[in-house]
């Protein structure tokens, strides 16, 4: 690990100042960052410990929703009585990720900011436009089993690896961000992560000196909530394809279909056309198949991950069938 200057932030503003230079990074749970620092993928000159800032609360909002502090651990969120009762898709998504040891340290803000598990990104002997802009992408013509099929660019086909944010995207949660000099802004989770485009080193919309302070969930919307994660072993593996689904029925027709997908793109994938297609219709195998046509109309495989296209199709059908009680 490269030497760095360790600073503990006493106040949010202090943390913002210290992370303003590009060489400054904040650390909370550290489960991803320390790993990447050992690999010298991340080499901050200043490491700003924000773990003692008072941002771990999970509290009701005036609007009937729930605000999850940036430093609330994944465990605290997953086992919170209101999350289990009102936002079960979020509990399920968190519990489907990592291990209890990691979830006990991982935080809301850190989980949103975790980096891709692309093998080329974590191997400093390999080219990677995300780690070293301009060095090329090893994955496009290389080992690409975990990689994206939607929203890729000719510079990067990495995936966002997390589960928590996929559920938050289905729930249409909002990320709250503090910036320089007491400023703040809010961004929908659906818009927080970026597509790689020609700046694949930018995972999300955070600017230097900005720090996530929390995530707000809207008022509970009920429905059948499912998190289905397809992976290569039954525990402690990243998603090949995952789906967070909130589906409701009224008089035999679908009245709500909020869907988000993990493992398929550089961000939790949300396509508003799916809800438009499904809502108002009677559930059927043909309807679900057409939904998959819409979801995957621009999908592109890179050899090793070609299987994700039919896998996403089948997983979507299975989730919709389960949510609507339809035989397929």
């Amino acid at each position: 690990m490269r030497p760095f200057d360790y600073q503990r932030a006493e106040r949010l503003e202090h943390a913002s100042q210290l992370t303003m230079p590009e060489s400054g990074m904040s650390i909370a749970g550290g489960t991803n960052l320390i790993d990447l620092m050992k690999l010298q993928v991340e080499t901050p000159e200043t490491l700003v410990d924000i773990s003692r800032l008072p941002m771990a609360q999970i509290e009701d909002t005036d609007e009937g929703g729930l605000r999850i502090g940036a430093l609330a651990t994944n465990t605290a969120t997953a086992v919170h009585p209101r999350v289990k009762a009102d936002y079960p898709v979020l509990s399920r998504a968190i519990l489907a990720g990592a291990t209890q040891q990691l979830r006990n340290k991982a935080t809301t803000g850190g989980n949103l900011c975790q980096r891709t598990r692309c093998y080329y990104f974590t191997d400093t002997t390999q080219p990677c436009n995300k780690r070293e802009p301009g060095s090329g992408c090893g994955a496009i013509d290389g080992i690409a089993r975990l990689h994206a099929i939607l929203g890729t660019s000719n510079q990067c086909i990495a995936t966002y690896p997390g589960d928590m944010a996929v559920a938050m995207a289905a729930l249409n949660a909002t990320v709250e961000i503090a910036g320089e000099g007491d400023t703040s802004r809010s961004v929908s989770v659906r818009d927080f992560h970026r597509l790689p485009g020609d700046e694949p080193w930018r995972d999300n919309v955070l600017k230097d000196g900005e720090i996530i302070t929390g995530v707000t969930l809207p008022k509970p919307i009920g429905g059948t909530q499912i998190y289905r994660k397809v992976r290569e072993r039954s525990s402690y593996a990243f998603a090949l394809v995952s789906i967070a689904a909130i589906v409701d029925m009224e008089d035999g027709r679908i009245s709500r279909a909020d869907l988000a997908f993990g493992g398929v793109a550089h961000k939790p994938w949300h396509d508003p056309r799916l809800s438009d297609h499904l809502v108002g219709s009677e559930p059927s195998a043909a309807l679900f198949d057409k939904a998959a046509d819409i979801l995957l109309d621009t999908a592109q495989g890179y050899g090793e991950n070609d299987f994700k296209i039919p896998l996403a199709r089948r997983t979507l059908s299975a989730v919709l069938a389960q949510a609507t009680g339809t035989e397929i």
């Binding site: 360790y6 550290g30 489960t31 410990d49 340290k105």
Partner: peptide, 12 residues
């Protein structure tokens, strides 16, 4: 709480 001590800095 159980954690992985390898992924945590002692100073924290």
């Amino acid at each position: 709480m159980r954690i992985n001590s390898c992924l945590s800095l002692a100073v924290m």
